[in-house]
Amino acid sequence: MAEIKTAEIKVPPLKKLTNYPEKLAPGHRLCAGCGASIIIRQMFMVANALGYELIIANATGCVEVCTSIYPYTSWRSPWIHNAFENAAATISGVEAAYKALKRKGKLPTDKKVKFVALGGDGGTYDIGFQSLSGALERGHDFIYVCYDNEAYMNTGIQRSSATPKYANTTTQPVGSESLGKPQHKKWMPEVAAAHGIPYVAQVAPSHWKDFMEKFKKALLTKGPSYINAFAVCPRGWRSKEEEGILVTKMAVETNYWPLFEVENGKWRITHRPKNPKPIEEYLKLQGRFKHLFKPENQDKIKELQEEVNRRWEWLNKMEEISNREE
């Protein structure tokens, strides 16, 4: 695979980035403290700075519902919503149309455009999984961005395959016979990477420089990229609206949400917390894990810590193996 030469292209400093016009207009109906809107705005900042127009296909979900209630729209960028499970297939069609029309000389040649499919974890990990996998395999020139808030939040906190073990959701609630979701979270970026696509990254908006560097790489990548973004959900997680970035930071600093990338098959952990905090520091900020702090459930917290360690070790191994000199 061709080396991506991204080092020379720099993302401008934050002060400059904030001067670009907002492409996600204020007045949308996303909740106070929602992580998804921050992710979208950071995405647009990089695109603006690098002179790209984003053409977005949005899966059904919080963002879609809250930004496009007719006759209003928050999008100052071309945007299409088709259904819940088909954002990746939809963007495939848009990208194919672009290629065909460009070839026929029917589109201006001076524009830099990039195609983005945007979905929550439901539209990505679950119902949209097949459509996403197909689009990644076919190699369309697009970025898939998943804002992962770890459940079906738009419809009221139903579990998804992105929901972490023991989280309280409305379809696997905590009860006398239940501690919440019985399964661990799916390792989605790893699954995306298994498609052998040129670029995969996991990001968190609290670590915005890391986020922007990765989104830049995705923008400059020819072919499919997958970005898994941590999207705090104060309503669904029962966390404080004003603590959104703190929760996000804590997810990274406990290694619950490792920041890493897979660039042309090479795995790299992009942020190593100096002294990783215990998982409790992340869990205790959220009401969805409240039941784990009962004395009888201490072993469950230990279990979650073990899963964090398992993934962290796995990522470290992948980094080592994929970068080994032959």
Binding site: I80, N86, A88, A89, S92, G93, A97, Q130, S131, E137
Partner: peptide, 14 residues
């Protein structure tokens, strides 16, 4: 595409 659902979805996009 990988399914008819995606065939029609891609046609909608296109």
């Amino acid at each position: 595409v990988e399914s008819e659902h995606s065939a029609m979805s891609a046609c909608v996009g296109a």
